[in-house]
């Protein structure tokens, strides 16, 4: 298949950036989206041009490194899929595809499609952990955990920190990401001692980073590759309220 790509190119944070059009030919429908970009990049390198910079690593949907807005949708239109898991067979021959970086003030563009998501790490630093130095833990069976709680905690813990939720949100809110971690830890008995301080600190950090507030539009969960549900945000709000009592 043959494609026309309109790709956001931006040299650095200060550069204004622009869309550049590329033609890619002989694309195999079995290629992944990133492999299609690899082919284009190989050509650009040989032509002496700068390849399109994009983040990626595992290429199997788990590291959370990849992320592009494809035809206006974070990670593309296929549901519950990261950019690296997207395959070209889902596109029409001769399609025109626009590719842009995550856009949100707290995620400044580093170059082309690469953005700086370090704000997420700082939200975790604020309290997204259980304080237990190595070697101080009691036997794992000393505290049983109900299966339903363990399963629900796991579901929330599957967030890969990709940032698609922020990119999709009209307010640029990081609520789904933050709520996923708060929910994971507050569902477990081990997470109880720090429950209040955790919610408070993480929510405050999220605000301090400049992420917007949640107005329940649900765009985040629609693009989330791991299907983190919206009700984690309700859990976050409950924990936050509890902490300010």
């Amino acid at each position: 298949m043959n494609l026309t790509l309109k790709v956001w190119r931006q040299n650095g944070p200060q550069d204004k950036g622009r869309m550049v059009t590329y033609r890619v030919e002989d694309v195999s429908p079995d290629m992944s989206f990133l492999e299609m970009l690899d082919v284009l990049n190989e050509r650009l390198i040989l032509e002496g041009d700068d390849p399109i910079a994009f983040d990626h690593d595992c290429r199997e949907g788990i590291c959370g490194m990849c992320g592009m807005v494809i035809n206006g949708v974070a990670h593309g239109e296929q549901v519950a899929t990261t950019t690296c898991q997207l395959h070209m067979r889902h596109f029409e021959d001769n399609a025109v595809i626009t590719i842009e970086p995550w856009r949100a003030a707290p995620f400044p563009v580093v170059k082309d499609l690469v953005v700086d998501r370090s704000a997420f790490d700082r939200i975790i630093q604020a309290g997204g952990f259980i304080s237990v130095p190595a070697g101080s833990a009691p036997d794992a069976h000393s505290v049983p955990v109900k299966k339903v709680d363990a399963d629900a905690a796991f579901d929330a813990a599957t967030c890969i920190g990709c940032g698609a939720c922020v990119a999709a949100c009209p307010n640029g809110s990081a609520s789904l990401f933050t709520a996923a971690k708060i929910t994971h830890l507050s569902l477990l008995p081990q997470g109880q001692p720090e429950r209040d301080s955790r919610a408070k600190a993480m929510v405050e950090q999220m605000d301090a980073e400049g992420f917007g507030g949640c107005t329940n539009t649900g765009e985040c969960t629609a693009v989330c590759p791991k299907g983190i549900p919206l009700d984690t945000i309700a859990q976050m709000n409950r924990d936050y309220l509890r902490s300010s009592k």
């Binding site: 952990f129 259980i130 237990v132 190595a134 070697g135 101080s136 833990a137 009691p138 036997d139 794992a140 505290v143 049983p144 955990v145 109900k146 299966k147 363990a150 399963d151 905690a153 796991f154 813990a157 994971h184 830890l185 477990l188 081990q190 997470g191």
Partner: peptide, 13 residues
Amino acid sequence: IDQAVAQGVPFAR
């Protein structure tokens, strides 16, 4: 395993 459980790693139960 003790360490991971104490940290909140949601192992299957």
